[in-house]
Amino acid sequence: MGCFHSTASRQFPGYEDPVFLASQTAFSVSEVEALFELYKSISSSVIDDGLISKEEFQLALFKNKKKENLFANRVFDLFDVKHKGVVDFGDFVRTLNFFHPNASQEDKIDFTFRLYDLDGTGFIERQEVRQMLIAILCESELKLADETIEVILDKTFQEADVNQDGKIDRSEWQQFVSRNPSLLKIMTLPYLRDITTTFPSFVFHSEVDEMAT
């Protein structure tokens, strides 16, 4: 694929060599290049600066930049590995790697723990879960009485919070997810297996030799 040499991609802030990114992730070099096509389209949707802002991320997720969503914000924060308020290409590929069908279950469990540990204390606390439940109810327009929310929280913490200290630690989370594997469904994106067919135009911008793919 060395026919179309271009240095355009190297001018993207945070651009990293696809061969290097492939060596660190479950993606092949061609898949990293196909992801770059997706990345370019998201990062230029509002401001064409080669970086993904929260607004651009939400626009790609909801097709509507005005939609505020607690969970989308959390996911964006986890993509923003360097805490710069924006996601660069390396962040994008490394974080999507957690969602790869071949990523380890351990990594997926760890990602969900960080996702739900809203304030980053190292525990998923009851008030955080309550906050997330209220957010999901607002999002879905489903109405549940406060007492019903507390019943759901009681039931969840009885099962997950093994030492009953009112918060879920990493080890309790690991055990809870093992007993409820459907909770990891959000962590696998089958799309990532077909990324090169979804974004075939990567072949026109490839900067690596076919041997490397």
Binding site: F62, F71, A72, V129, I136, E139, I186, L189, I195
Partner: peptide, 29 residues
């Protein structure tokens, strides 16, 4: 939220139905 009765679900099953956690839409053109 889900086809199941929400009261029978644990909190995280409910939470994981959020659109904000469905990254599949990033890949829809």
């Amino acid at each position: 939220v889900a086809s199941q009765n929400p009261v029978t679900m644990n909190a995280f099953e409910l939470i994981s139905t959020s659109q904000g956690l469905n990254l599949g839409t990033l890949f829809e053109k």
